[in-house]
Design a protein around this nucleic acid. Structure first.
Lengths: 229, 229
DNA sequence: TCATTTCAGATTGTCAACAATCTTTGTCGA
DNA sequence: TCGACAAAGATTGTTGACAATCTGAAATGA
């Protein structure tokens, strides 16, 4: 055991991300109950702070808060999953459209280098970082499109998407390869708004169509092993 | 004083709405500080619950939470205001587009009767309810479009819009009259997606263009008078 | 007179104990 | 044996008190 662990106080953000990671990486299965005391023991913080983090997770749709019952990892239905993708298409198509007319040279450079990073992680077999970078690509687009609000909304939707993929994505299919992202960047670079919109639409539809409606794997493991510091 | 007041416990939702109303109706000016203890006294609840409500208000962009400083009624800049309208156009144009192909007879009926209500409130001079109904119209569209997620996102944006209007709307100009709403309903009834989208775009742009960039009225009154039960 | 420091007051952040609620288990009777 | 009821245990919801932090004013010295 590490004696240092108790010294540096853990921030709420860190707790949030730790749980987020565990859910997105399929370590905690959908439907799993998250007891407040259990979490407060694991992270060595008071229940009050755990409670606050749980509220934030609930707001972002990763867990469900049932009054007097507690917190459960969300179990998005296939309808909710499709709704998430509908919302994402709505927002992201508009964002790339706008980007085509507003993006500058350094913006294009950031997109390109990001796709490069994705390529590296993908070919290196680092699944976890590949998934994370894939989400970050979409967030980068929102950031560059200079809409703080849509960027914030999209952040939530991407979190939800991670959970959905954890639930419904077929095992063998990895996250969207970086090629489609590259195609999006190309369209933006060419300032072809119509094409960029179409490519983004196709990209999101592609991911949605990979969903497997049958599977319902529930991996229930010991929380302490997964989240332990 | 009413002895009943202390009996029925007040729900968080009620506290939220009370503050929301006060902000949207311009009773609490932007920038006003909201002290936790002050609010907990007013509503006769513990600070912990006030704190939770404040978190929710901050999530919806109505107040700003500064660490170790407290909560202030948000002061959206004109850029943020434009961003809100950009986000609303993005979402609502898509929603009416979808409605044109999915709405049923009873949905159209609900829209029509809602516009009737608006007309009544508008000609009756009930400004507060007119504003509320105007927002509710947009929410109704989201609800009918059967996208839980976009409806939820739009709910937040409408809250923000109320605050923006409270800050920047010119005094004389009332909220958007019901006529434009009626035109939207007509387009949807005709199932003319292209026109519905255009009318919605025009409608939101119209509201945005009514903003007055100069004004910065700060109405600071005693909170207890405004929120008192 | 002005800038800096110090200190008091006020306000938010955190916590641990208590109350309310729900779930489970065990018991009783038909 | 099965269902209903009751008590016990576990878990969440709420509260008040304490600690950490910030603001503003008074005091000090150049």
């Amino acid at each position: 055991m590490d004696a240092e662990a108790a010294k540096r106080p853990v921030t709420d953000q860190e707790i949030y991300e730790k749980i987020w990671d565990a859910i997105a990486e399929r370590q905690i299965g959908p439907g799993t109950r998250l007891k407040e005391e259990q979490l407060s023991d694991i992270f060595s913080v008071s229940r009050a702070r755990v409670r606050q983090v749980l509220q934030n997770l609930a707001r972002d749709g990763l867990i469900t808060l049932v009054p007097n019952r507690g917190a459960f990892v969300a179990k998005p239905s296939i309808e909710e999953a499709r709704d998430v993708f509908f919302a994402r298409r709505t927002i992201e198509e508009r964002l790339v459209e706008r980007l085509c007319s507003t993006i500058g040279a350094e913006g294009i450079e950031r997109l390109r280098s990001h796709v490069d990073d994705e390529r590296r992680a993908h070919s290196g077999g680092e699944v976890a970082t590949a998934i994370r970078l894939s989400g970050a690509f979409h967030l980068l687009i929102a950031e560059l499109a200079q809409s703080q609000i849509l960027a914030g909304l999209l952040r939530d939707l991407i979190s939800r998407t991670s959970l959905i993929m954890a639930m419904y994505q077929q095992k063998e299919v990895l996250s969207c390869g970086p090629d489609e992202h590259a195609a999006i960047v190309d369209s933006i670079t060419a300032r072809d708004a119509k094409k960029a919109l179409a490519v983004m639409h196709h990209h999101l539809a592609h991911i949605e169509n990979q969903l497997d409606l049958e599977s319902e794997r529930v991996v229930a493991r010991d929380l302490e092993d997964i989240l332990g510091l």
